[in-house]
Each structure stands twice: as C-alpha cells, then as structure tokens.
Computed example of a mutant assay.
Amino acid sequence: MRSTYRSLRLGVVILLGLLGAAVVLESVRLGCWLDSLSAYYWSGARDALVGSLCAVGALLVAYTGTDDVEDALLDVAGLLALVVAFVPTEPRTGCAGPGAPSALAVEHDVRTQVAALVLAGLVAGTARAVVAARSGLPLPSTLVRAAVAVPAVVLAVAFAAAPQVVVARAHDVAAVVLFVAVIGVVVRRAFDARPTSGRWAAAYATVGSAMLLTLSVVVALHALAPAWGHAVLILEAALVAQFAVSWVLQTVELWGTDVVDGTTGPA
C-alpha cells in the first residue's frame, strides 16, 4: 500500500515533466514559443498536453489526502484538471504550425467531452459517497467523498444554461480554481507542519506564497494585458514548477508514513 501511494505521488511529477518536455520539444521544432502553455493545444504537443493533464487529474482524484479537507481539495483540483484538458483556450495567431485541429471541429469535440465528464464526475461522487457511508464513516467524511461531484454539478448547470460560454470560458476559470485548490493544500500543510517542524512549515509557506503571487500575476495579465507575449508562458511554467516543488516536498516529508486508519494514507 505504501508503494502504491508513493507511485501515485511520483507519477504526478513525472507527468508534469512529460508536459514540460513536450512543450520544449515542440517549440524547438516550430522555431518559436507560443504565448501560453494552454496555447500548445493548437500545436503538435496537443496529445501530450491533454494526456498529461488527464492523467494528473485522475491521480489527484485517486490519491487520498491526509485529512478530509485536503482530500476534497485534491478531488476538486483533479476534476478541474480534466476540464482544463478537454476545454481548450481560444486559438491565437502565431507559430502553431501545420496539423493543428480546426476551432470548429474542436468546439464539437468539447461539447461531447464536457457532457461525458459531467456524467463521470456525478457517478464518481455518488459512488464514493455510497462506499464511505457503507464503511461507517461519519457524515462529514461521507460528504467529502462526494466533493468531486460538486464541480461536475456546477459544470452541468452552466453547460445546460450557456454552452457557448462554457466552451469560451471554462478553461480559464477551471485553471484558476484548480491552482487555488492546490494552493489551499500547500497552505494547509504549512499550518499542519508548524507543531512538529518549523522547517517544513516555512518551506510550504514559501512555496504557497510564491504560487499565490504567480497566480495573481497571471490572472492580472490575462485580464489587463491585450498582448501577453511570452510573459504568461513563463509565469504559467513557473506556476506548474512550483506545484511540482510543493508535491515533491510533501512526498519527501511523508515518504515513510503508514496508513493510520481507513481515511488516511501514506504519501
């Protein structure tokens, strides 16, 4: 069981490395850099981008947090990673190169994928809540197990009311909320580590603060700067790297932790 949890954690880091390698190699092939990580959906790196995000999302949902709050945050982040993968950002002019999918074809694909994701999220949340209830977990823990269904419900309502808005905006909104959830995990770890290790608490606080600052700057650039240039690409890459650092820190800290009961797992 310990080996399985270690593999889950290491898998997230390896997949983020795969994403970074695909972006770099595609940029070398094209001879230029696109203006954001999401823009590589419209390049030859599309499959690596979508595949790595889907796999990371699945691992975040599968991984059991050290407590109910962390578990809920990771579940929400995992489902939103799938939204980011399935709903691309708007195509932009530049050096995307030949072979990029057409915007019209992608719009039809997005509608199918969002509908499938909503159904999968609802089934996953319901199944996990039922299993938790049958296992005798308290009501708060049972509700946490259904947290993955919350963004699925929100997405379903939004998609039913305004599908065009979902296609146009869901990517950016999901990406921001995803990182907010991850930052929440890092900040929570900083507070949890304070009674036992000031060094670990300081490390988590530093990474969490850096992620929050970077995310704020990225959001501001998206909202205020009409010509983002490569600043957004650099900041998004930094944000993903900071997430990887936070994940590695927690992996190292909890490397030898055993399962205490049915609600927690080793990292």
Results as ranks from 00 to 15, higher is better:
50 V>T: 11
257 T>E: 14
242 Q>G: 11
219 V>P: 07
256 G>A: 13
133 A>R: 15
256 G>S: 14
108 H>W: 12
10 L>A: 14
24 V>T: 09
199 R>W: 12
229 G>D: 11
199 R>A: 15
191 F>S: 15
243 F>E: 01
196 T>M: 07
130 V>D: 04
161 A>E: 09
235 L>W: 12
132 A>C: 08
208 G>L: 09
194 R>G: 01
153 V>N: 04
93 T>Y: 12
149 A>Y: 00
115 A>M: 08
80 L>D: 05
198 G>A: 09
71 D>N: 15
17 G>I: 02
55 A>V: 12
123 V>Q: 03
227 A>C: 02
14 I>H: 03
189 R>C: 06
38 S>P: 06
111 R>Y: 12
184 G>K: 06
242 Q>M: 15
43 S>C: 08
81 A>H: 05
218 V>P: 05
128 R>H: 13
113 Q>W: 04
255 W>C: 03
52 S>T: 15
116 A>L: 14
160 A>P: 01
89 T>E: 14
70 E>D: 13
204 Y>I: 01
7 S>Y: 04
110 V>M: 04
72 A>K: 01
217 V>Q: 11
159 F>G: 03
206 T>V: 15
37 L>D: 06
153 V>T: 12
169 R>Y: 13
97 G>V: 04
258 D>C: 06
196 T>K: 08
103 A>Q: 10
2 R>D: 06
168 A>N: 13
212 L>Q: 10
123 V>M: 10
37 L>Q: 12
238 A>T: 13
5 Y>N: 15
260 V>W: 11
91 P>C: 06
197 S>F: 03
55 A>N: 07
90 E>Q: 14
9 R>C: 11
17 G>N: 06
123 V>F: 08
184 G>D: 07
231 A>Q: 12
17 G>T: 06
238 A>Y: 00
228 W>E: 15
190 A>V: 06
102 S>Y: 02
265 G>I: 00
252 V>A: 14
31 G>Q: 08
45 A>K: 01
155 L>Y: 09
1 M>P: 05
109 D>C: 00
133 A>N: 06
95 C>P: 03
84 V>N: 02
136 G>E: 07
52 S>C: 10
146 A>F: 00
35 D>R: 13
232 V>M: 09
171 H>M: 06
189 R>S: 15
259 V>D: 14
107 E>R: 15
145 R>P: 03
164 Q>M: 10
261 D>P: 01
119 L>M: 12
175 A>R: 02
226 P>D: 13
132 A>N: 03
211 M>D: 05
17 G>V: 04
232 V>F: 11
130 V>Q: 09
250 Q>E: 13
236 E>N: 08
126 T>Y: 07
175 A>Y: 03
233 L>M: 11
236 E>K: 11
171 H>R: 05
27 S>M: 10
53 L>I: 02
10 L>M: 14
193 A>V: 02
116 A>Y: 05
201 A>F: 00
167 V>D: 06
90 E>Y: 08
121 G>S: 09
195 P>S: 07
231 A>V: 14
55 A>Q: 07
68 D>P: 03
17 G>K: 02
203 A>T: 11
215 L>K: 04
238 A>I: 04
41 Y>V: 02
148 V>A: 07
256 G>W: 08
40 Y>L: 10
173 V>I: 15
183 I>E: 09
54 C>Y: 06
168 A>K: 13
22 A>I: 05
166 V>L: 08
